[in-house]
Write a protein that binds this DNA or RNA. Structure first.
Length: 450
RNA sequence: CGGGCUAUAGCGCAGUCUGGUAGCGCGUCCGUCUGGGGGACGGGAGGUCGCAGGUUCGAAUCCUGCUAGCCCGACCA
C-alpha cells in the first residue's frame, strides 16, 4: 500500500477523552473513531489488525477441530425466556422491539441460539463430540463503557460451544480449548495466563480466565511468579490426544494464579514469599464447563447407544477479539507509539523514502515494494512529500515492526537500512538482502489479512 | 446508578465572570525554499459556539429545559 493512496488519519495531539495508552494510540494512529459511547468505527488500519487477529483465532480454532459458523446479532427473546436468562441478564442486555411488537435483543452471548440449533439438528450420540464457534459482534449495555475498545458496549468476540456425551468428554473439550487458546495468544505475541475465575451469569463450576498482565488492567490478579516462565512454544499438540491436552492444562494451571474473585489468601501464602505477585490484568478470554445447565433447560438431548435420551454436556469459550487490540497495545508500546508483534502487524514493514522525487530513491523504493510483494509481504510505502522526521514519527506511531529506510546517501553505497521498531537496531544492507531478511523473519508469521 | 466535569473549526484549547457579532496552536489547501527524527517563510479555506426556548436593541457569554460525552466508584469478553 502506498501511503498517499491509503486512509490513515493520524493525530499529532492526544484526544482529550482517551485516558489509557492503548486508547490514545488507537485514536492517534487513525485506527478507530468513536461513534457513540462504547461503540466504534474501525478505520482501515484498525480494521486490518482486527481481521488479522480474527484470522489467527480462526486458524487456531480450526486446528483444534472446531467448526466455524455464524449466528445473528439480533435474537428473539423467546429463546431467552426458555433458558430463564431473559430476566436474569438484567439491564446489560439491550432489548429491542420490532414493528410487530415482538421482543428482540442484541445478543450479549449465544448459548441459547446454539442450543436451539443443536437440538433441531443433532439427535444421536454418534454426532458427538461437536464444537461449533463463530466470531460475531456482541452488545452488552455497560453502565460505564471506557478505555476505548477495551470496554466497549459493542465488541467482537469469538464464542464457541462444545457438546459432548459425557462429562469426561466435555472436560477434554475444556482442556483442548485451554491449549488452543494458549497457542492463539502466543501467536499474537501475548502472554495470557489462565487463572481460576468466577463463572458469573454464564453459570457452571469449572472456568478459567486468560489474563494479560498490564498496569491498566481492570482485574486484580494474584499469582506465583513461576507461571510466567511457562510457554507453549513450538511443541506439537494433538488435539485429539486426551492425555496430552490434560497434561498441558495441568502444567499451566498447577501453579497458583487467580483473579480477586477467587483469590484465596491462605493458599496464596503457601507460595514462597519471593514468588508471590499481585498485579493487574486484562481479561482476554474465558472458558467454561457448565454441564447440562442449558441442555436441561432447553431440552437438548441425544439418543444414547441404548436408545434413551441423554442431556448433553456443554461448555462455552470466549475470546475478546476487539479487546485484544487494546491488550496487545497495552503490552507492547513505547513513548513513540505502538509496537506490533509480527503476528498481527497491519503491514509487514514500512518503506520510508527520505527524498521523495529523487529519481534514484523513488526507483529503489518501488523495487523494494515490488520485491516484498513478490514474496508475499505487504509493505506500507510512505511516498508522501514529507520530511524524514515526519515519516519516521508516523511509522513509529503506527508501530510497524520493521522499517526500510531509503535515501540517496545510502544508495550511493548500494545499501538501505533495516530497522527494528522494538529494539531500534539498525542494519545497512543491499535492498535485496533486506527483503530476504524480512521474508525470513515473517516465516511462520504469515496471517491472511485483507 | 451515586459523585465530579465538559460541550466553541478535523484535533488540542482561549474567549463566558463583566453581553457588542469569534480567536490561537496543530492539521489542511496554494506557492517558494528546504531535505536523515513532526522544518521555515508567504498566502488561503474552514465555525448552526451541543440542541430548544427565554431575557435583551443585541447572546458563545445571562436564565430555563433537554441532549451527548468524559472521569472516579459499585458491575462485566
Amino acid at each position: 500500500m502506498r501511503l498517499t493512496r491509503y486512509f490513515l488519519p493520524v493525530l499529532k495531539e492526544n484526544p482529550a477523552e482517551a485516558q489509557i495508552v492503548s486508547h490514545r494510540l488507537m485514536l492517534r494512529a487513525g485506527m478507530i473513531k468513536q461513534a457513540s459511547a462504547g461503540i466504534y468505527s474501525w478505520l482501515p488500519l484498525g480494521f486490518k489488525v482486527l481481521r488479522k487477529i480474527e484470522n489467527i483465532v480462526h486458524e487456531e480454532q480450526m486446528r483444534a477441530g472446531h467448526i466455524p459458523m455464524l449466528m445473528p446479532t439480533l435474537q428473539s427473546a423467546d429463546l431467552w425466556r426458555e433458558s430463564g436468562r431473559y430476566d436474569d441478564y438484567g439491564e446489560e442486555m439491550l432489548r429491542i422491539t420490532d414493528r410487530h411488537g415482538r421482543d428482540m435483543l442484541y445478543g450479549p452471548t449465544n448459548e441459547e441460539l446454539i442450543t436451539d440449533i443443536f437440538r433441531a439438528h443433532v439427535s444421536s450420540y454418534r454426532d458427538l463430540p461437536l464444537t461449533l464457534y463463530h466470531i460475531q459482534w456482541k452488545f452488552r449495555d455497560e453502565i460505564r463503557p471506557r478505555f476505548g475498545v477495551m470496554r466497549g458496549r459493542e465488541f467482537l468476540m469469538k464464542d464457541g460451544y462444545n457438546f459432548d456425551l459425557t462429562k469426561e468428554d466435555a472436560l477434554h473439550a475444556y482442556n483442548r480449548h485451554l491449549v488452543s487458546y494458549l497457542r492463539t495468544y502466543e501467536r499474537m505475541g501475548l502472554q495470557a495466563i489462565p487463572m481460576r475465575a468466577d463463572s458469573g451469569p454464564i453459570g457452571g463450576d469449572d472456568t478459567h480466565e486468560f489474563l494479560v498482565l498490564a498496569e491498566t488492567g481492570e482485574s486484580e490478579v494474584f499469582y506465583d511468579s513461576a507461571v510466567t516462565d511457562i510457554q507453549l512454544g513450538e511443541r506439537e499438540i494433538d488435539y485429539d490426544d486426551v492425555d496430552q491436552c490434560r497434561a498441558v492444562m495441568e502444567e499451566f494451571t498447577a501453579l497458583y494464579a487467580r483473579t480477586d474473585e477467587t483469590h484465596d489468601e491462605a493458599k496464596f501464602n503457601e507460595i514462597p514469599e519471593e514468588r508471590r505477585r499481585s498485579a493487574r490484568g486484562i481479561e482476554v478470554g474465558q472458558i467454561f464447563y457448565f454441564g447440562t445447565k442449558y441442555s436441561a433447560a432447553m431440552g437438548a438431548t441425544v439418543q444414547g447407544p441404548d436408545g434413551k435420551p441423554v442431556e448433553v454436556h456443554m461448555g462455552s469459550h470466549g475470546i475478546g477479539v476487539s479487546r485484544l487490540l487494546g491488550a496487545i497495545i497495552e503490552a507492547s508500546h513505547d513513548d513513540n507509539g505502538i509496537i506490533w508483534p509480527e503476528g498481527v502487524t497491519p503491514f509487514h514493514a514500512g518503506i520510508v523514502n527520505l527524498k521523495q522525487g529523487d529519481a534514484e530513491a523513488d526507483a529503489a523504493c518501488e523495487a523494494i515494494y515490488a520485491a516484498m510483494t513478490a514474496v508475499g509481504l505487504e509493505p506500507l510505502y510512505d511516498d508522501r512529500e514529507e520530511r524524514a522526521g515526519a515519516k519516521f514519527a508516523t511509522m513509529d506511531l503506527i508501530g510497524l515492526p520493521w522499517r526500510i529506510t531509503v535515501g540517496p546517501r545510502g544508495l550511493k553505497n548500494g545499501v538501505v537500512e533495516l530497522t527494528s521498531r522494538r529494539t531500534g537496531e539498525n542494519e545497512e544492507l543491499p535492498p535485496e538482502e533486506a527483503v530476504q531478511r524480512l521474508a525470513a523473519i515473517y516465516e511462520g508469521h504469515m496471517v491472511r489479512g485483507i
